[in-house]
Structures are given as C-alpha cells and as structure tokens.
C-alpha cells in the first residue's frame, strides 16, 4: 500500500502549493523543504483531510492510520501529566526510547524543557503505531544535541513507518529522508 501524490495542488481557500508528485510506503521517509508560505504544512493538512485538494490526485490508503506532529505542539502552561502517561494515553508501542528521553518520561510535562517536550511528542507520534507519520518542523525548539536525539528517534522506527517530514532543517532531512522534495513558490 502506498500514499500517492500525483501533480497534487493543495491549499485552504485557494491553491497554495505547486504541483507535487511523490509516493510513500512503509519503510520510506520523504522530506519536504521550502521557504515559508509555500504550503509545506498545508500539504500535511491535506493528507490528513483538513486542507483542500484543488487539482491532481492524492490517494491515501483507507486503512492507514495517521500520527501527526503539528508545528506548534499543544503544551499547557500547567499540567500534572507525565511523559509516561502521555505515551500510555496515546497507545504508544513499547519501543525502548533513547536513553536521554527515558530519563524525562517520569517527569511532569510542564517541568521539562521545550526541547525535551518536543522530543517526547516526536517519540509519541513515531511509536503510536500509525502506518503514516506526518512531522511538521520536528526540529523546532531543538538545539544541536537534541537534533541528534531526534535523528536517533526517527531512525529507530523508520523501517516500520511511512514518514513525511516538513522541515527547514536541510541537514536533518539529508540525514533521515530517503528522498527530499524542494518546494518553491
């Protein structure tokens, strides 16, 4: 089974992206790169059924579940929930997390750093069990060391998932993606 995009143009009220073509199947990671406003995040929203398809074809296998890391992950100012509880609620599979992340899991989500929270959310969507993983700017809020951990997280599970990553971070995409598509206005 594959996700197939064939000359697809997506947007909200009007077409935003140039025509895009790619395929995505289990074990493949595709990166989307491009300047702000070119419609990278809108493409993910279209795959999730939120944004509109104006032309072309976008076929998503109906049995595929989606785990989606949004660009601005929802982090309440005050919450008692721990990382372990978040992973349990999201029905994440029992992959062993990277050592550095494992230390964070018992702590409350409002008492870890922004980078640790981003790594935890990334780990949650990668191990949730969904066939298709959509990552929108997963290296946001991450310093150099954390980006290394994010790469480790993606590489841990990418053989079992179809992963589509939108990112400004060229080095990150070059490391984890099998194919990088550059979008231009």
């Amino acid at each position: 089974m594959k996700l197939i995009a064939d000359a697809v143009v997506v947007g909200w009220r009007r077409p935003l992206t140039p025509p895009l073509s790619f395929t995505l199947e289990r074990g493949k990671t595709v990166g989307i790169q491009g300047p702000n406003g070119v419609g990278k995040s809108t493409l993910l929203a279209a795959i999730a059924g939120e944004a509109q398809i104006f032309s072309g074809v976008l076929l998503r296998p109906p049995t595929w579940r989606i785990a989606w890391l949004a660009q601005h992950a929802a982090r309440p100012e005050e919450t008692p929930y721990s990382g372990e509880e978040l992973l349990a609620a999201y029905a994440c599979q029992r992959h062993a997390p990277p050592q550095r992340l494992a230390q964070v899991l018992p702590r409350r989500l409002d008492r870890i750093s922004g980078g640790e929270f981003q790594l935890l959310m990334l780990w949650a969507v990668l191990t949730q069990g969904a066939e298709l993983v959509l990552l929108d700017e997963p290296t946001n809020h991450l310093d150099h060391e954390h980006i290394g951990l994010a790469i480790e997280e993606v590489q841990n599970v990418q053989k079992e998932r179809a992963i589509l990553i939108v990112s400004h971070d060229h080095d990150f995409l070059a490391t984890v993606a099998h194919e990088v598509i550059a979008l231009s206005p």
Binding site: G49, E50, R65, W68, A74, Y90
Partner: peptide
C-alpha cells in the same frame, strides 16, 4: 488535549 488533530486526521 495534546494531539487535538488526531481524531479528525484518522
């Protein structure tokens, strides 16, 4: 709360 788009996307 933490993944508000999860239900709609699926």
């Amino acid at each position: 709360r933490f993944f508000p788009e999860h239900e709609k996307a699926n």
